[in-house]
């Protein structure tokens, strides 16, 4: 019995005291207060949090957890989105059928559902997060800049959702984009239909025409066609995720720098 017991302990030691494990996790599994603090401090992901927070901030009725859920949903969307890209080709010829096939040709067939419903839920959680921050007055100095970053994140969330709306290339998609891109055409000065676009001209040659206004730059075409689908695909899968991650990093960093979670003075 004796040697067996010894071996058991050694197995745990073999893992947790091994060079490999110690190179990844610098701290032991925490058993005391110091250990708990050090664990948070030493972990790249956990150190988004401070080691301790005030009591009121743990109460669900104060924070509603909307910020963390929005972040979580963003990661769910990133992962499911990457998986969806394996089965989707952004061309007018293939897009609709690829989406149609997805339900049949992929195991379980709910990846698109998870992606779509998570996206809806993310919009709602971001709105409610903003509402909570407003109602607690948490945007007041010194957090006013981070509120601004949050507003940009909110806008980007809706833009991400909107660009994803086009990709199935169905009736819902094309008409939402028709309306959306014609708003670009109505932009003052740089849109063909917008006020003041006639001012931007050299002599008789108008600088803002069918093939040179904001709408044309957005769609890469005068119609909603191949160019628009590819552009919205790139916006949705690369450009906006890239931008939103940048702003998310600033947002989280500023929470810590602006004094952590808000609370009464």
């Amino acid at each position: 019995m004796g040697p067996e017991k010894k071996q058991k302990r050694n197995l745990a030691d073999l893992i947790f005291k091994s060079v490999l494990w110690r190179s990844i996790f610098r701290t032991d599994i925490p058993t005391d207060k110091r250990g708990r603090m050090v664990t948070v401090l030493n972990n790249f992901f956990l150190h988004l949090h401070p080691v301790s927070i005030p009591r009121h901030a743990v109460k669900l009725k104060y924070t509603w957890l909307m910020g963390i859920l929005a972040t979580f949903l963003f990661f769910v969307l990133t992962i499911t989105g990457i998986l969806l890209m394996f089965y989707y080709r952004p061309t007018v010829q293939y897009a609709y059928n690829d989406v149609l096939d997805m339900a049949e040709s992929t195991p379980l067939g709910v990846m698109r559902e998870i992606h779509r419903w998570s996206a809806h839920l993310m919009v709602i959680t971001v709105w409610l997060h903003m509402f909570r921050v407003f109602m607690t007055g948490s945007y007041k100095p010194p957090r006013e800049f981070n509120w601004g970053v949050g507003v940009i994140l909110l806008t980007l969330t809706m833009l991400l959702s909107f660009t994803g709306y086009l990709l199935p290339w169905d009736q819902l998609a094309i008409w939402a984009i028709t309306v959306g891109s014609n708003m670009a055409a109505a932009t003052p000065l740089v849109g063909r239909e917008g006020p003041g676009s006639a001012l931007l001209s050299i002599g008789d040659i108008s600088l803002i025409g069918r093939t040179s206004d904001a709408k044309f730059m957005l769609l890469g075409d005068t119609r909603i066609a191949e160019g628009a689908l590819l552009r919205f695909y790139v916006f949705h899968c690369v450009f906006f995720p890239f931008i939103i991650v940048m702003f998310m990093m600033v947002h989280f960093w500023r929470i810590r720098k602006d004094g952590g979670i808000s609370g009464p003075a």
Partner: peptide
């Protein structure tokens, strides 16, 4: 960069 967004040819 902006000009690059507007292609020269429009396949209408």
């Amino acid at each position: 960069l902006l000009r690059f967004l507007a292609p020269n040819v429009d396949y209408e």
